[in-house]
């Protein structure tokens, strides 16, 4: 099973990285891992459930502020707030879904953004509690020795990404995944064969919110200062969409490749502030026009490979040879 070997080898390299890697490498991998988690979550929504959100920054921000409130106001260990941030984000996603699921397609997309915008403004307006526009810092992180803090951050990021990828694979292989594929092919058709489309979509939406919320908390563990305009910035959505579009929507491998490309490109374009966002936008447009299945789609067109097989094989007896 070469695939298992590759994955195990990769896992081992990652797990041991703090032993041999430099601080810069470690921080870069953390960044890779949280972008991967964000991308995985968005990909589940858009690529599998047909829910094109441009407002996932709402949950990045919720996760970030959950970190601040739980660690600073309630005195919890900042790293222990990660699962709680996930729970808070999922909890917030529930009422949001009641509202959003009344809307179709592109309207859903803009409405997710409006909700994120409302949260950004609300955080800006909450001056006494959340520090208004200047935000708040996670001071309790200062209690950790720097090396230790970076190591825990690294393993937390690794755990988050593992949960995001494994969760996505598991969700897609479960009944929910089957239902999702039916919905993606034809929503009325899926309903007709008894898929509870709304419940299936809601499950995915909450899962994506939880992953995004935990990623938000993790991101602000590395950045320490939480400001509303940054935490609720639509740029989070832009980065994530770019990652998934370039890697390949609706695949597990796509976001991995996309995150690597995104980080490399951002590195190459660093210092060209405006140009980099312009180029990201232009690449996303070009990909949608000329390679809508992304780089991974181009790869699988040529070679028939899959790192994470989620497609079910059709039993041979159902594949009938065409007779003339």
């Amino acid at each position: 099973m070469p695939r298992i070997l590759i994955l195990a080898g990769l896992g081992l390299v990652l797990l041991s990285l703090p032993l041999w890697g430099s601080g810069y490498q470690q921080r870069s991998v953390v960044e890779f891992l949280y972008f991967l988690s964000l991308a995985m979550a968005w990909n589940l929504l858009a690529g599998y459930a047909g829910l094109v959100s441009i407002g996932q920054q709402a949950f990045v921000g919720i996760g970030a502020y959950a970190l601040v409130v739980l660690a600073e106001d309630l005195g919890l260990n900042p790293f222990l707030t990660l699962p709680l941030a996930a729970a808070v984000a999922a909890l917030a996603a529930l009422p949001a879904s009641w509202l959003l699921f009344r809307l179709q397609g592109a309207y859903f997309a803009v409405a997710t953004w409006v909700i994120a915008e409302v949260l950004r403004l609300a955080a800006n307006a909450s001056i006494d509690w959340l520090g208004g526009g200047r935000g708040r810092a996670v001071r309790s992180l200062g209690g950790f020795e720097r090396g230790l803090r970076e190591d825990i951050t690294f393993y937390a990021a690794l755990a988050l990404a593992a949960v995001a990828v494994a969760g996505a694979v598991w969700l897609l292989r479960s009944c929910t995944g089957l239902g999702l594929m039916a919905i993606r092919d034809s929503e009325p058709g899926a309903q007709a064969v008894g898929v509870e489309t709304t419940r299936t979509k809601r499950r995915v939406y909450l899962f994506a919110a939880a992953i995004t919320g935990a990623a938000g908390a993790l991101i602000y563990i590395t950045q320490i200062n939480v400001r509303p305009d940054a935490a609720f910035s639509v740029n989070w959505a832009a980065y994530v969409i770019f990652i998934v579009v370039i890697g390949g929507i609706g695949t597990i491998e796509g976001p991995i490749i996309g995150t690597l490309i995104f980080l490399a490109l951002r590195e190459a374009l660093s210092g060209l502030e405006g140009w980099s966002m312009l180029i990201f936008g232009a690449i996303a447009i070009a990909m949608m026009l000329f390679a809508p299945r992304g780089i991974w789609g181009l790869v699988t067109e040529r070679w028939n490979i899959a790192l994470f097989p989620i497609r079910r094989q059709m039993p041979a007896r159902f594949i009938e040879k065409e007779t003339t």
Partner: peptide, 23 residues
Amino acid sequence: DGMMPAVIITFGLAFVIQNGLLM
């Protein structure tokens, strides 16, 4: 191809216009 490509393309265009104007 449904509404997703149009949503993503116009979202990308938004960033192209913003940063093009900035420059």
